[in-house]
Amino acid sequence: MCFKMRYSYIIENVMENENTHTIFFDADFNALPGQFIMVWVPGYGEIPLSLSCTGKPKAITIKAYNEPGMKLINYKKGDKLFYRGPYGNHFSLVDGKKLIIAAGSGIASMHPLIDDNSIIIESLKRASDIIFEKELKGRAIFTTDDGTLGIKGHVIDALKNVNLNDFDMIYVCGPELMMKSVFDFLKDKNVRAEFSLEREMKCAVGICDSCSVSGIQLCTEGPVFTN
């Protein structure tokens, strides 16, 4: 339960799109899909990042929109990645068919769940925002705001055409508005679904109250919640 700051060596830095990179690092801790680590970029800050690969090697996928993120995407093979964790709960693992619903980089935390038994609905602003292209192609239904890839529209436009009874579990991660729309859509349907929430996190150990929602600490009691 106590996680000292430590480091691992970076094995590879893969550019996913213009400002999103996946960094693979050599670490032997145990982690499950949905969990996150606090990554420290010395001199620039510390940010929570979901593990986009939970096996060996592990990986984080960073969309660079703040200073630590921008530094991080320039890390090279052999650099030290400082972090603490893993923290938080995880997605339930099921044997059956899985529906993964994501918007933008929300797919990162669910990337470890993708296999031959999963269908993905991925919502993007435009075609060039795609990440994990190799894994998604052939398994994903895309929606884009501008219609440059797949259906022009939002996740619900794709979700409407899916037979929900085919799936044993639905996983959702993305901006809160998108998750709310999925939550509402699924409300009167008899399905199992899990949502991974995002909030600003500072301590990650359930004491600073910065990620609390209705008295629940996302960092320790979440980030994954069931419908």
């Binding site: 359930g206 004491i207 600073c208 109250d209 910065s210 609390s212 209705s214 008295g215 600490q217």
Partner: peptide, 11 residues
């Protein structure tokens, strides 16, 4: 500690 949010303190 856990005391910036009313609902947290209530808990």
């Amino acid at each position: 500690i856990l005391d910036e949010n009313g609902y947290t303190m209530k808990k």
